[in-house]
Design a protein around this nucleic acid. Structure first.
Length: 416
DNA sequence: GGGAAAGGCTTG
DNA sequence: GTACGAGCCTTTCCCA
């Protein structure tokens, strides 16, 4: 019987208290769906079309001929054969033309920047502005994403048809897509985000005092890291130093390598290695935690989250150094990403339970890994602010506080 | 004509 | 040779 097998591997509680109760919560979210403003997207699509036509004409002029801009193969021929620009990186089948490469090439020619612009516009148009309206359900007038519980190996959810977890936010143009996700008349969206949840989990599981103390004091964690790594007082940290520290912090969570960090920071591998050495010198317990986690994974064959969720990693015993390296990065990342996923899922179950128990009309609509989005009747806004923040922040007691940031607004872009 | 692979871009 | 986890789009290739 399944529950006996789960009990034997210590996963019964995870199943009974998190995964199974989550099923009806996800079902409710899928049935609820979310409203998107078709007119707004259609209008934006027409604007994008005009911008694409302009960009296309520009590109043909700079290239000296017409070609299919959507074809990396044809683009590579133009850039690296016709225009003799330097090929910076290879793919399996030819020369890479990705955004990183094009940004470098843009320093020496006008065409690459135009290609980037064209790709940005084409992406927004095809994936979002033109696709989302086709997914509007005729009966509900809303789109109904699927939340997949059995896809991501770390325990995260994924989302499809559409993927509601990669709606643009980083650029002004992209945020116009987000603005088309609108709350029902008489309602507002309430967005609740965990602040720095993965770094807080790293602080907790490693026991690293400098991180734990910084979070307890409510400090800017990247600034604090910069001060330590660069050996300067907190108020002498430059924005550039903070940026380096921020990237380094993420690199550690991702399973750090000097190579990867050097790419992220646009510096030599040697310089990146020096930052890492300095980081680990100042954070010895983080170093110890990472080493311990990999060793344990190698011995047991799997690594675990705080709540016992497992990721099996046979790669850790591979004789192939490349494969083993992958395994080691996955081993350091999975417990952190997976613990965050566990905590968010628990919070979802508890918030849903509270909504039902109190007969509230607010509905949970989306989960984006460390964020929950609710549709809230005007009259319930203050109640929901308090309820959601309390349930999320107190989901589990750690050695550092969990902080949730709230925003309210008429659409998913303008929540503040 | 259709499916799979490749390359690329979006997000946390 | 490399950052961790996903999904969707267009082009290209290959086979029936």
């Amino acid at each position: 019987m399944a529950s006996r097998a789960l009990r034997e591997v210590g996963l019964l509680e995870l199943y009974e208290t998190i995964e199974r109760p989550l099923v009806p919560v996800l079902a409710h979210m899928e049935r609820a769906g979310i409203r998107v403003d078709r007119q707004r997207l259609d209008e934006f699509s027409r604007e994008l079309e005009l911008a694409l036509e302009r960009a296309t004409r520009d590109i043909y002029v700079h290239a000296g001929e017409e070609f299919n801009i959507g074809s990396p193969k044809q683009l590579a021929t133009i850039l690296f054969e016709k225009l003799k620009l330097p090929p910076l990186r290879k793919t399996k089948t030819g020369y890479s033309t990705d955004a990183d490469v094009l940004e470098q090439l843009a320093l020496g020619h006008e065409l690459p920047a135009k290609i980037i612009e064209h790709r940005t516009l084409a992406k927004l148009k095809s994936t979002y502005a033109d696709s989302l309206p086709t997914l509007i359900n005729a009966r509900t007038g809303r789109i109904h994403p699927s939340f997949n519980q059995l896809v991501a190996v770390t325990g995260r959810l994924s989302s499809s048809n559409p993927n509601a977890q990669n709606i643009p936010i980083r650029t002004e143009l992209g945020r116009r897509i987000r603005a088309a996700f609108v709350a029902e008349a008489g309602h507002r969206f309430l967005a609740a985000d965990y602040s720095q949840i993965e770094l807080r989990i790293l602080a907790h599981v490693s026991g690293e005092e400098s991180l734990v103390e910084a979070f307890r004091r409510g400090e800017d964690i990247h600034r604090r890291t910069a001060a330590e790594v660069f050996g300067v007082p907190l108020d002498h940290v430059t924005p550039q130093q903070r940026d380096v520290a921020k990237t380094t912090n993420f690199a550690v969570i991702y399973g750090v390598t000097a190579f990867g960090l050097s790419r992220g920071l646009d510096m030599t591998q040697k310089q990146a290695q020096e930052y890492l050495n300095q980081f680990f010198a100042r954070h010895p317990k983080v170093k110890g935690y990472l080493t311990r986690t990999v060793a344990e994974g190698r011995e047991r064959g799997y690594v675990s989250t705080l709540l016992g969720r497992r990721r099996y990693l046979p790669e850790l015993r591979s004789g192939n150094p490349n494969l083993r390296g992958f395994g080691e990065r996955m081993a350091t990342n999975a417990p952190i990403q997976g613990t965050a996923a566990d905590l968010v899922k628990i919070a979802m179950v508890r918030v849903a339970r509270e909504l039902a128990a109190r007969g509230l009309r607010s509905r949970m609509l989306l989960q984006v890994h460390d964020e929950l989005l609710f549709e809230v009747p005007q009259a319930e806004i203050e109640t929901m602010r308090t309820l959601v923040q309390e349930k999320m922040e107190n989901v589990h007691s750690l050695s550092v506080p969990l902080l949730v940031e709230l925003g309210v607004g008429p659409n998913w872009r303008d929540v503040e």
